[in-house]
Design a protein around this nucleic acid. Structure first.
Length: 292
DNA sequence: CGCGTTTGACCGGCGC
DNA sequence: GCGCCGGTCAAACGCG
């Protein structure tokens, strides 16, 4: 299955719809998360997996014309660390150090005990945060076709915010992994153009095993139609004007990449040449839209 | 009571 | 400097 034109979504929908339910019963979204991390790492370690730059060249000046709106990912810098600073070590290091500082400051404020001191400590903390160079976590964006806003991916998430999205009637929700020491966040928003499409952006990497076994909690059970996945890859703009903006990997039940046998998806991708399902970037799809 | 959600306020970055 | 906007905080609330 190739998403070569504007019918990609519909084609994917028909391909991954009710008919694929049995297959998806045994596949949890958690495994897809595992996939995205493994897949991501394999991307870093296996440059051969990266499609040729001319094919995926993204004109950042050109705004999306139709279809999916992915403005948040239209800047290169947001994903620049993906390729140049692979998360070989848990990304919680900076977070934990920050937390330690906060803990120290909080301890001080507890001893002081009055509001003025607390204000001071808050300012100190903010000052430290400000001075500390913001380290952007690697992000992964998944596009899933589902009526359900919040997918059960096996991890436990705590919602910490919700904001209205500009030019969209659908709000964006912010979730944080509830596991202590795990600073993984995710944003969930619904596509304005196609209300059945949920854009989920994961930020960071889990530093703990999945607390819930995905078996039995997969797409089939929740009625999700996993039509396709988007894996965003960006290369540092400062190094090269080469971008790896969008890559679509089909989640067709027929795709052995997502076999529920628990084997490494990344190796499957490598071993079995599953990149055949990686298709055109969004821009190209939009261009296809224009041509119709 | 513990945990998760809601929601208004707040903050920092950025463009003008 | 000001306003806009994305992201986060935290108190209040709901639920099992």
């Amino acid at each position: 299955m190739r998403f070569s034109d504007e019918n990609s979504t519909a084609a994917a929908e028909s391909g991954g719809g009710d008919g694929g339910g049995d297959k998806w019963d045994s596949l949890g979204f958690m495994e897809l998360l595992g996939i995205h991390q493994d897949f991501f790492e394999s991307f870093i370690q296996q440059p051969a997996l990266i499609l040729s730059p001319p094919l995926l060249q993204l004109d950042t000046e050109q705004k999306p014309q139709a279809g999916l709106q992915l403005q948040p990912y239209s800047t290169v810098s947001e994903f620049s660390e993906c390729l140049n600073n692979p998360p070989a070590t848990p990304n919680s290091s900076s977070i934990s150090s920050l937390s330690n500082e906060a803990a120290n400051i909080n301890e001080q404020s507890t001893n002081a005990g009055d509001d003025e001191e607390q204000d001071k400590t808050k300012k100190q903390l903010k000052h430290k945060k400000k001075n500390q160079k913001k380290q952007k976590e690697p992000r992964f964006a998944f596009i899933t076709k589902t009526e359900i806003d919040h997918l059960d991916d096996g991890y436990r998430w705590r919602k910490y915010g919700q904001k209205a999205v500009k030019n969209s009637p659908y709000p964006r929700s912010y979730y944080r992994c509830t596991s202590s020491g795990c600073g993984v966040k995710k944003r969930v928003e619904r596509s304005f153009d196609d209300t059945t499409i949920i854009i989920t952006t994961y930020e960071g990497k889990h530093t703990h095993p999945c607390p819930v076994q995905p078996r039995g909690s997969g797409f089939g059970n929740i009625g999700l139609t996993p039509s396709f996945m988007v894996h965003h890859q960006y290369q540092d703009q400062q190094q090269e004007e080469v971008e790896q903006p969008y890559m679509y990997a089909s989640l067709s039940p027929l795709n052995p990449c997502f076999s529920p046998n628990g084997s490494s998806s990344a190796s499957l991708i490598r071993d079995h040449g599953l990149l055949q399902d990686i298709v055109l970037p969004i821009k190209t799809r939009n261009e296809a839209n224009e041509q119709v």
